Amino acid sequence: MKCIVLDSSHKDGIALVELREPIPEAWEVKVKISAAALNHRDQWCREQKYPNLKDGIILGSDGAGEVVEVGKQVDKSWLGKEVLINPAKNWGEDPAAQGSDFSILGMPEHGTFAEYCCVPADRVHQKPEHLDYLKAAALPLCGVTAFRATMVQGQVKKDDKVLVTGFGGGVAQMAAQFALSKGARVFVTSGATWKLEKAVAMGAEAGYLYHSESWTDEAMANTNGFDLIIDSAMGPTVNDLMDVVRPGGRIVFYGATLGNIQELNARKLFWKQVTLKGTTMGSDKDFQEMLAWVSHHRLIPTVDAVFPLSSALLAFEKMKNSDQMGKLVLQINPPSED
């Protein structure tokens, strides 16, 4: 089967290769992958910036397709089902945080950028009926991350003023959708005007260019402070967020693309009674509740572009350059015409 593997010896850091089709273990299902979506972790693996890297591992965490084979311990009713894959493994018993055995499909274990993928049967869920394979593949990792950040850790409520920073990435656009579907008032930041316009078209009230020195003043003039901020940058920008969060507000962050916080205005943090909370993907319960919410509200992940598996490098380069609005998807086994 054709697949994309990590290859540090290759000038591109990845390679399209042929491997033998996997055979499911007794507790696994074999999924014929119709579509798989990129995440930043795939690009970070390519750049050798992720822990526990191994050459020859099939990349990819998100995937959707059809169950074509089951292990001997798996209910045969899964055969032929259209599914998407929960890429989180071994969350553990504590809903508050993942355990030490937690891992994500696609490194250090084979992932979804392949024609076939074997996963434990409890990692597959029926695809939401309103989503085709391309959009279903775009949902799992960004969906559960955004759901946990917004709904679980952020405890968003109707009429909350919510700021989603860095609008354009997969998690950010889903966080905005979750907040809107909860009845919150949504605002965004981005480095590109056209992405702000997309956000407003999706239902956001306003957007701010985070490169502008006056964006915090504009935001405060419009809102008088945000109840909840969903962020993935951290670094030096955290003090801007401290300026625009209202007293008693919450800042939830799921990444640190700008690095660690070098300076934090601790006095403002405690005087404004602000909660600063970290989050990551999510538990199995979070994933199930996310799918139910997406299905009930018929939410649709934003797909920026679709590439064949043979053009995966183009998708990686687009992600590297932050050119996308939403998810980048690889179409691997297109659905038949009949």
Score class of each variant (00 low, 15 high):
217 D>G: 03
138 A>L: 04
220 M>Q: 13
18 E>W: 04
19 L>T: 14
187 F>Y: 15
46 R>M: 13
256 A>R: 06
123 R>M: 10
81 K>S: 08
332 I>W: 03
173 Q>Y: 11
295 S>G: 11
127 K>T: 00
328 L>W: 07
49 K>S: 01
210 Y>D: 05
92 G>W: 02
30 K>Y: 06
334 P>K: 04
106 G>D: 04
163 L>Y: 10
96 A>P: 05
252 V>K: 01
256 A>L: 06
43 Q>F: 13
154 G>H: 05
265 N>R: 15
57 I>L: 10
17 V>P: 11
178 F>M: 03
274 V>Q: 04
326 G>F: 00
264 L>T: 07
60 G>S: 14
76 K>T: 11
163 L>K: 02
232 S>M: 04
258 L>S: 15
181 S>H: 15
110 H>I: 05
211 H>P: 01
199 A>Q: 07
5 V>N: 06
181 S>Y: 09
287 F>V: 12
186 V>N: 09
291 L>C: 08
80 G>T: 05
83 V>P: 13
87 P>M: 00
203 G>E: 03
289 E>K: 15
32 K>S: 06
24 P>D: 10
21 E>L: 08
196 L>M: 13
299 L>A: 12
229 I>E: 14
65 G>A: 12
248 G>W: 08
258 L>I: 01
194 W>D: 12
218 E>D: 15
161 K>C: 05
247 P>N: 14
